[in-house]
């Protein structure tokens, strides 16, 4: 797996640092500050993927990387891999608008899939509501919470390039477990069907979103159960 370390125009190197979907503990944040001072980091920059780029001289790269690992941070993978997951602050403790635990799901997805090697880079974004602060419709695999432990999944989005695309709805009302199962299914299908170096968005555009749909009945929607419960509640005998 390639690491995201790139030579810059000024001859220095940029190293892309990944935390838990952009969340740092104060200890990690202070530790990162100290590490960058010790390693003579020239500048730090926040990225659109909620990572931090540090620019420093080549001879200090290894030293900084060792310090990052000690802080529970890592260097972003690069190339055909699952990249750092973008997740909004939607969870029970933070954003009041959140419909579901997006941040927790994003962190869990990143812990499991970051660095998985694939045909091309795969970008995942998770949002706690349809406001979509993390642009889930512009991700290869976008997840939007619709209520507690209920998520809609869009695939085939692409935010950049001259031809940006919005993802298409692949599945609705999935539980957290269902999101993991679906992601694995999508990545497997992508690995099998994609042309060399073809991005997921292009594969979806070429074959259609249904090519990525799991076989009928693969996932039990949490909300099918809720729906049954709701209908039973509505239909109960007696006064309203």
């Amino acid at each position: 797996m390639n690491k995201a370390i790139f030579k810059q125009s000024n001859g220095m190197y940029a190293i892309n640092i990944v935390s838990a979907c952009g969340v740092f503990t104060p200890k990690q944040f202070a530790g990162l500050g100290q590490a960058t001072l010790k390693c003579d980091v020239y500048r730090l920059k926040l990225t659109t993927r909620q990572t931090v780029v540090a620019v420093l001289n080549e001879e200090n790269l290894a030293k900084l990387e060792t310090r990052l690992l000690a802080l529970g941070l890592s260097v972003s993978p690069y190339g055909g891999t699952v990249r750092a997951v973008k997740a909004c602050a939607g969870n029970a403790a933070l954003c009041q608008r959140a419909l579901g635990d997006a941040l927790d799901l994003g962190i869990a997805l990143q812990e499991k899939y970051l660095g998985w090697e694939l045909n091309k880079d795969v970008k995942i974004a998770v949002a706690g509501c349809s406001r979509g602060c993390t642009d889930p419709l512009c991700a290869d695999f976008g997840v939007i919470a619709r209520s507690r432990d209920s998520f809609d999944v869009y695939i085939g989005g692409r935010g950049s390039t001259r031809k940006p695309l919005h993802g298409q709805l692949l599945a609705e009302n999935l539980s957290t477990v269902g999101v993991f199962q679906l992601l694995e299914h999508v990545l497997d299908t992508y690995s099998n069907l994609a042309h060399p170096k073809e991005r997921l968005a292009s594969t979806v555009a070429r074959l259609g979103v249904r090519a990525f749909a799991p076989p009928e009945g693969t996932f039990t929607s949490r909300n099918e159960q809720l729906d049954d419960e709701f209908l039973a509640f509505i239909s109960k005998e007696g006064e309203a």
Binding site: L226, D227, F233, I234
Partner: peptide
């Protein structure tokens, strides 16, 4: 009944 269901479940959105 929808309101009572939402209250009972502690939810604001009832999917479907």
């Amino acid at each position: 009944r929808s309101l009572k269901f939402a209250l009972q479940k502690g939810i604001l959105d009832i999917p479907g």
